[in-house]
Design a protein around this nucleic acid. Structure first.
Lengths: 193, 193
DNA sequence: GTCTATATAAGGATAGAC
DNA sequence: GTCTATCCTTATATAGAC
């Protein structure tokens, strides 16, 4: 039973700062200040800024995996998809302030031409594959991936615009619209052969 | 008949670089290099980096206005909305490489806590108001703004995900889906009273 | 209006004492 | 494992010659 290590605390604060201020705009000084250590100590735990970015992406991958698993396998597939859509509501305050952590990071890394872009995009891959699994379970074997990307795309659009316009009413209305779309999608899983 | 001034050429190159590399990651040296002038000359035309950002936003506002006007008033409203949706197809190469210029700039400025965020968001406002006008013309007086934001949101989502995944098939499929949604929206403009 | 030279600050990264 | 001190580079911005 160990309390969190310095390395973990650095990852944690960097994760938050990268999300709220962006990767490039976040300096070592700010991370060090947030953790409460000196800049020099920093390099005992990470060898470069790219190194900590890798660690943050690892963290987010693991957190995403854990979240998807927490939504279980014993509930109806539509309820699991609904859990995904509801993230927008649960995290609405942060989303309206800073956008979606996944979308905004990949966008930034793309513009920077950063090598970690590919790894950041893999977080989208986790959501896509998990959603595709749910749509497959609903009987949409051939369209599972398109449907997964549709839900993912709609969610990203809601996050971008809700953040730009600081419009919670828009966010709520679009989440409801997406849930209605899901409700109306026929469950084909019982139709065999 | 004057050829483009140095100031105009700076705005032009800065506009492109801010889009492709991001505002913060773009240095004066890069802009100066692209224009073919020295860094010192720069400050004869703009007093700061924020000053050029203002000019770039002005440019984009004007370009947006001009584009919306170019779509005319003498064609059916649905065709005008379709013109908006088709931007995603027309600009698909750039969108898949760098995302939507409006969405990515507002997102970045939000994270930077930059004062120009509000002005950048006004570009979304131009699209929203113009789209709302078209939906009003279709007879959706009460829902015009929600419908406008729905189209704007869907478009932003398509841009973010197509860029992250570099997936043109996804972009094409979602543009088609949005056009189908528009086609199926009943024209209520003839029902008076 | 354009240039070179320079001021000033900040950021990433390293060395070495404790 | 943490600190202070320092190096190197880059960035914004200014001064002043041409």
């Amino acid at each position: 039973m160990s309390r969190s290590t310095t390395r973990e605390r650095i990852e944690e604060k960097a994760d938050t700062l990268f999300y709220e201020s962006g990767f490039e705009a976040t300096s070592f000084a700010e991370i060090a200040g947030a953790v409460g250590i000196s800049r020099g100590n920093f390099y005992h735990h990470f060898k470069s800024k790219d190194d900590i970015l890798d660690a943050v992406i690892d963290r987010r991958m693991a957190a995403t995996q854990a979240m998807l698993e927490s939504w279980g396998t014993d509930v109806p597939s539509k309820d699991r998809i609904r859990s995904f859509i509801r993230i927008l509501m649960t995290n609405r305050t942060k989303i309206m302030a800073f956008g979606c952590p996944v979308g905004t990071l990949t966008t930034e890394l793309t513009k920077l031409g950063h090598v970690a872009e590919t790894r950041a995009t893999e977080i989208f891959g986790l959501f896509r594959d998990w959603l595709a699994l749910q749509f497959t379970a609903l009987g949409y074997q051939d369209d599972a991936e398109s449907l997964a990307l549709h839900v993912l795309g709609r969610s990203q659009g809601i996050a971008v615009l809700a953040c730009a316009l600081k419009d919670e009413a828009f966010l709520r209305a679009e989440v409801t619209a997406l849930e209605v779309w899901l409700d109306q999608l026929p469950d084909k899983s019982s139709m065999k052969g």
